[in-house]
Amino acid sequence: MNDICRLGILSDTHLTTLGDALEFSFGLKNGLFAEVDAILHAGDIILPELESCFDDIPFYAVRGNMDPARPGLPVKRVLRFAGFRIGLIHGWGAPDEVPTRVLNEFSGQTLDVLIFGHSHQPFLERRGSLLLFNPGSALEHRGRAERCSVGLLDLGAEAMARHVYL
């Protein structure tokens, strides 16, 4: 019996065609995300149909700066999985300022994990008991030496995250 909740973490997919979304989701569903309990997307989805490409995997997202406002796509949210409180937001501004900005956005709230995007740069840092995590961009690395990346978040005795380079 598996007592760990595993979440697939995405951000900044910037997909524009259904064909690309189907190919992208198929690869993840049959690979890295084959055993996830849910998918969290930290914004800049662009193509709303991406959610339905993941079939019956629960999909939670927030609006990024490139996403139009639409029902069911809040700017930020707090989710609960396996007893952990997870903040989800896109972020804004200069890449090195994003962690501070998103932390301030959840000021006064108790979180165990804060997931964000926007910078396209993988980020993983503990600040006290809070785990800050940016999976990077799944499809646009913006000239960085690293390849595109997604994240896996395991929730068991503690929250453990890792980047997976595609």
Rank of each mutant, 00 (worst) to 15 (best):
A82V: 08
A82K: 09
A82H: 06
A82W: 05
G83R: 13
G83T: 13
G83H: 07
G83S: 09
F84R: 09
F84A: 13
I86V: 14
I86P: 06
I86A: 06
G87H: 02
G87Q: 01
L88G: 11
H90P: 07
H90M: 06
H90R: 07
H90Q: 07
H90V: 09
H90K: 08
W92K: 15
W92I: 14
W92G: 15
W92R: 15
G93A: 12
G93E: 00
G93R: 06
G93W: 00
A94H: 09
A94I: 00
P95T: 10
P95W: 08
P95N: 13
P95Q: 13
D96V: 04
D96M: 09
E97Q: 11
V98T: 12
P99D: 11
R101I: 12
R101N: 15
L103K: 13
E105S: 14
F106T: 12
F106I: 08
S107H: 13
T110G: 09
T110S: 12
T110E: 10
L111S: 11
L111G: 14
D112N: 12
D112T: 14
V113G: 07
V113E: 00
V113T: 05
L114S: 13
L114F: 04
L114A: 12
L114G: 11
F116S: 11
F116Y: 05
F116Q: 07
F116K: 07
F116T: 09
G117N: 03
G117L: 02
G117C: 03
S119W: 00
S119G: 06
S119T: 09
H120K: 08
Q121F: 04
Q121W: 03
P122F: 03
P122V: 09
P122Q: 08
F123Q: 01
F123C: 03
L124I: 05
E125W: 00
E125F: 02
E125K: 10
R126H: 14
R127V: 11
G128C: 01
G128H: 02
L130E: 04
L130Q: 06
L130N: 10
L131V: 06
L131Y: 02
L131M: 06
L132W: 02
F133P: 07
F133Q: 04
F133S: 08
N134D: 03
N134F: 01
N134R: 01
N134T: 02
N134L: 01
N134A: 04
N134K: 01
N134E: 00
P135K: 05
G136N: 04
G136H: 04
G136K: 04
S137M: 01
S137L: 00
S137H: 01
A138H: 14
L139C: 15
L139K: 15
E140W: 01
E140D: 11
H141G: 11
H141M: 12
R142L: 11
R142W: 02
G143Y: 02
G143A: 09
G143P: 00
G143R: 06
R144F: 09
R144K: 15
R144N: 10
A145Q: 10
A145C: 05
A145I: 06
A145R: 14
A145F: 01
A145V: 11
E146C: 15
E146K: 15
R147C: 10
R147P: 12
R147A: 15
R147N: 15
S149C: 03
S149Q: 05
S149V: 02
V150H: 12
V150M: 10
V150Y: 12
G151Y: 01
L152S: 08
L152F: 04
L152E: 03
L153Y: 03
D154I: 05
L155P: 08
L155I: 12
G156Y: 11
A157R: 15
E158G: 06
E158A: 11
